[in-house]
């Protein structure tokens, strides 16, 4: 043996650079601020009040889906079916809301219940099947993706359902001080999710299962039901998203939500939640949804063509996750 490596200053490896400190502390929020700065410098319309309203409206559905997905991803699962379940719930609710002989209030109430029920049911099935047989949720929810989509097409006979009560549409387009009511609904969901994840036994178990399912099971906790609950919550939020979809567009389309699951998963992952489970936060998911929404909006405002827009969106997802990786690394040691 001859080779010996010489390096005099061992302390040089420690992370004291201010650049690293910034990444460590600000994390994904920094990426969002960066995007906002870039877009406000390059488009006069970006910070206009009505554009901010637009952005908030546009991220609402993705944010609602991402809130539910955060629960599932925290237990190291995945739900690919949320986009299809949204369509299924929207179509079921669309059928309900257009039933003849209902007053507008009854019709809307019935539709809301129908959407929530349909979404919850799909989520419950996802959870029961994957938890009972211990099967990868990736494949079970992929199955559900097809079942729910097929169900939506079947029930609607592949027709767009329309003619909803005006009040429903009013709710979809209402805003308070420029903040869309549907976005406020999403924020309330974020708040509830934060409370549940951080202040309740259930939230503790969600993180515990994601980290070490076996330890939680051996401590006597009903892991099965916690997992089922996580998927059910995800289905429920898809139902809520379906209501927002209907209220915003005043139609139910059986081809609604194609590919939404990927945007929602991206929001959760950009927000720092690990696909391996056990690590992540709902605040991160909120930021992740904002990053995706701001990007989609800003790139159109600065006039980038569709294909460039798609490429840049992909690039930003990767950069955000890489940044988060470094943040994780520096906060650990």
């Amino acid at each position: 043996m001859t080779a010996t490596n010489v390096k005099v200053n061992g302390a040089a490896k420690s992370s004291r650079f201010s650049f690293k400190a910034i990444i460590r502390d600000a994390g994904i929020g920094l990426a969002l601020i960066g995007l906002i700065v870039i877009f406000s410098l390059s488009s006069e319309h970006f910070l206009a009040a009505n554009n901010i309203t637009n952005i908030l409206t546009q991220i609402t559905i993705n944010l609602i889906l991402a809130v539910g997905l955060t629960f599932v991803i925290l237990i190291a699962g995945i739900d690919l079916s949320v986009g299809s379940v949204l369509a299924f719930a929207a179509v079921v609710a669309g059928k309900a809301i257009t039933l003849p002989g209902l007053g507008p209030t009854e019709a809307i109430m019935l539709a809301v219940m129908a959407a929530l029920l349909a979404g919850t049911l799909c989520g419950l099935l996802n959870g029961l099947i994957s938890a009972y047989w211990g099967l990868p949720s990736f494949i079970i929810t992929l199955g559900m993706l097809n079942i729910a989509r097929g169900g939506a097409l079947h029930i609607s006979e592949a027709q767009t359902i329309y003619s909803f009560p005006e009040q429903f549409n009013d709710f979809g387009s209402a805003s308070i001080f420029g903040i869309p009511v549907v976005f406020i609904v999403a924020l309330v969901l974020v708040g509830i999710a934060w409370f549940v994840l951080h202040k309740t036994v259930f939230g503790r178990m969600i993180y515990g299962i994601g980290n070490n399912e076996e330890a939680v099971r051996l401590a006597g906790h009903p892991v099965f039901w916690y997992k089922v609950a996580a998927f059910t919550i995800c289905g429920l939020t898809a139902g809520v998203a379906a209501i927002v979809y209907m209220a915003r567009l005043n139609i139910s389309s059986p081809i609604a939500g194609i590919g939404f699951e990927l945007n929602a998963i991206a929001a959760v992952i950009i927000g720092g939640t690990s696909l391996m489970g056990g690590r992540g936060s709902i605040q991160g998911t909120l930021l992740g949804a904002f990053i995706i929404g701001v990007l989609a909006n800003g790139l159109i405002l600065i006039g980038l063509n569709d294909f460039m827009r798609q490429m840049i969106t992909g690039l930003v997802i990767i950069v955000a996750v890489v940044l988060d990786h470094y943040r994780e690394k520096y906060t650990k040691v």
Binding site: N212, L218, A219, G220, R279
Partner: peptide, 28 residues
């Protein structure tokens, strides 16, 4: 593998099997 949740705190691990003692009505 089975005993600890390594990414969780000492306090959180200590109460894992007796969560009902440190919670009420489902709240921690």
């Amino acid at each position: 593998e089975e005993g600890l949740i390594l990414d969780m705190s000492i306090a959180e691990n200590s109460s894992l099997a007796s969560i009902e003692q440190v919670s009420s009505a489902g709240l921690m």
